[in-house]
Write a protein that binds this DNA or RNA. Sequence first.
DNA 1: CCTCATATACTTTTT
DNA 2: GTATATGAGG
Length: 793
Amino acid sequence: MNDFSEEDAFEAAVPLSQRAMAQRPTPYLDSLNPAQREAVETLHGPVLMLAGAGTGKTKALTTRIAHLLSTGTARPHEILAVTFTNKAAREMKERIGALMGEAVEGMPWLGTFHSVCAKLLRRHAELVGLKSNFTILDSDDQVRLMKQLIEAAGIDAKRWPPRMLSGIIDNWKNKAWTPDKVPDADHAVFDHQGVALYSAYQQRLRDLNAVDFGDILLHMVTIFQKHPDVLDQYQRWFRFILVDEYQDTNIAQYLWLRLLASKDKNICCVGDDDQSIYGWRGAEVGNILRFEADFPGAHVVRLEENYRSTPHILAAASGVIATNKGRLGKTLFTSREDGEKVRLIGHWDGEEESRWVGEEIEAMQRGTRCMMPMGLDRMAILVRASHQMRAFEDRFLSIGLPYRVIGGPRFYERMEIRDAMAYFRLAVSHDDDLAFERIVNTPKRGLGEKAVQTIQRTARENGVSLVEGARLVCQGKLLGGKGLKELSILVDALDRWRGQVIAESDTHVELAEMILDESGYTGFWQNDKTPEAPGRLENLKELVKALENFENLQGFLEHVSLIMENDTEEQGEKVSIMTLHAAKGLEFPAVFLPGWEDGLFPSQRSMDESGVKGLEEERRLAYVGITRAEEICTISFAANRRVYGQWQSQLPSRFIDELPEEHVEVLTPPGLYGGNYGAAGMSSATIAGTTQSNLHQKAHSADVYDSPGWKRLQSRSQDRGQAAKPRAQSITIDLEAVSAFTVGDRVFHQKFGYGELIGIEGDKLVIEFDKAGSKHVMARFIVAADQADDIPF
DNA sequence: CCTCATATACTTTTT
DNA sequence: GTATATGAGG
């Protein structure tokens, strides 16, 4: 290939690294610490940069690239730099630009694994039976295809859900297994049909000239493995390779990198094994652990000086992560000496937890909590699972606290956007069967399942695309009145739009608007009276606006599938709410980590599915969470939580036990008298292990005693001569309260619902609840079942 | 063919 | 509790 000859000559003639060094001054090196500097200046040979949280990883990485460029060691196009997110790629570009003073033209090969590989794959698509204009399917398309294949194979899609198959195949692809490489042990999955369906799926993708996300990597690995000449080109082309977040690479990515790097071995991988949190998605921590074996003589640099967090926060994070086995091991340190301890607080239930967090945020905002008022955008709530966000959203909505959810449903994954895109795709290419299927009956055209089947059959019989099939159906009048009319209107419209795409008679933005209009799609949402309809129309407007940044529809469609980003950065100071995963790479002065309860965090599912490995990944997630905090880190848990409609009592997370006591301050919930539960001297272990019932008491006093319902209950109990004295004399009362019940009684609890008393232990009643299972509950929370209806909770 | 009602299962995390 | 899938009725 001619592309390379020029570079090769250049390389041969000039010992670049020394000679070019003089070309530009290197002032940027001065702001680096010794470890960073070593990582930046070791330009040749394999380098593993172990960069703990907040140690200036991105700085080192971008400075390294700047150094490669300004010393003349490499030219921009000779550097392959891969990240996982578009955001990381963009940030790197910006920072390199800043370092180099705008002097560099963009780096063409700095991007995400997927965008770089897609670009390469388009050049060599024919080697895996594709055309270079292949489309990239998202998981939605993937699942729909899967469903068709499953049904075609005569398998009950109910018992064998397409989603599951899609997940299995994704995993195989992450391991770089083509259908023929799936090991025997995996053949039993999916009713022994998994591999056959995998083959069928791959064939179908090829027919559609499409790839899914996993394919982008998998095909590249296949090409490199089967075509040494192609590999050789790129080995010479990419003289320097840099990889961000190496701990998150899966096997396919690993193989791809190793193939590319095996010649010059100028590869620099940056990562932190302690922040590997994508194992469930196929990431292999092993890749980073194995680096030195893969690249003998590798230079290992540890970045351990943390510039982000206070010593207490660092120590707490270190304490938690220390429990994990098989780490490469780093010891974070900081020169800071100030700072608050990590704060720990328990609550009665999730509702109280969100209320407390809300109040705390407002206090910080006003400056009553800390010395200085803190802006809302400097605070974040990091949750384990997205459903935890709701409690906070509800609460913040009701108190009018501005918040922003990060990483919610992505813009390009929203239904209306995907529908609109399907129209665009069809306008550009009538061959896009998936797009056609998506929109035939959206908006409703009276074309139901039967009509679609007719179209599909016709298309298949004639060996044409669905659009052409539909045309034949219209011509042959194979369909009834209304459907037929609507279908021919649709086909005509598609023809017209495509004509305009080709003729370029309008700007693509105008065309897009016209398509949405004439298809009836805009009107469809205008007539929709559901509350989300206005938002969807708004999104469509945004989509059209986003089009303006592209040359034409084709260009837009090609880029969009890989740039799934939520660019709608609303203005204004808001608290951020996001998952721990979404928080990786971010930092905030104040961080709240709610829901630290066993089963929730660590997630039961992780532990069930992946055992110790899963638990360790959860622990790394905890580590990531804590290390997001710069100044104040607040961990909380609730004693009770509603999990899909059912109340469950929760145990504090085992990670709480792992927090080193001397770096933790246990808070007493507000509005409570001190009692024995004051913060002073109480260890995390105490909270975690033994004080749950105390928390019940405390929270109960705050929550329930003030409520009218409780007061009424109290007065009624008094009438009946039962326990109803002030709570300060709790033990006596509890024993009295217990005596009011007999085993076998039908009872009611405010949150657990109805149940049967099956035993009495001390001041607690053992109750088998109908819905919430068996629990030990203090007697004063319990009423006889026949009185339950009177309680106006 | 569409709309409405009921049943059901599902909840980690996502390039 | 929520979203989705199925069924009856219009």
